[in-house]
């Protein structure tokens, strides 16, 4: 109850990991840690789905559905039934 953050879309495929260590470097919540042979997924619940690990994984071992996470945008999408917009960069930045 009252915890909507118990699961997320982070997925890690150990088979594809080449142990380059990038995921442990870029993650700001220490979700990944360096391992002896492959990276270790140590704290998946702390993942905020920023997508940095997926972006910097050279073998595509990590996938995560990242988004801007702007609640206004999601409210708007929920009410109008339109697709969730990403913040537009032309006008006033939203966050």
């Amino acid at each position: 109850m009252f915890d909507s953050y118990q699961s997320n879309t982070l997925h890690y495929d150990r088979e594809k990991c080449i142990n380059c260590g990038m995921c442990s470097i870029v993650c700001p919540h220490a979700v990944f840690a360096p391992g002896d042979e492959v990276a270790k997924l140590v704290d998946p619940i702390s993942c905020m789905e920023c997508g940095a690990c997926q972006m910097n994984c050279p073998t595509g071992a990590i996938t995560v559905e990242s988004g801007v996470g702007c609640a206004y945008a999601m409210f708007y999408a929920a009410i109008t039934g339109k697709e969730e917009p990403t913040c537009d960069t032309g006008g006033d930045p939203c966050c």
Binding site: Y5, T9, M48, C50, E65, G67, G69, M74
Partner: peptide, 9 residues
């Protein structure tokens, strides 16, 4: 810098 999109949704 810690809430996931999945959680907010």
């Amino acid at each position: 810098t810690f809430t996931s999109v999945t959680g907010v949704r």
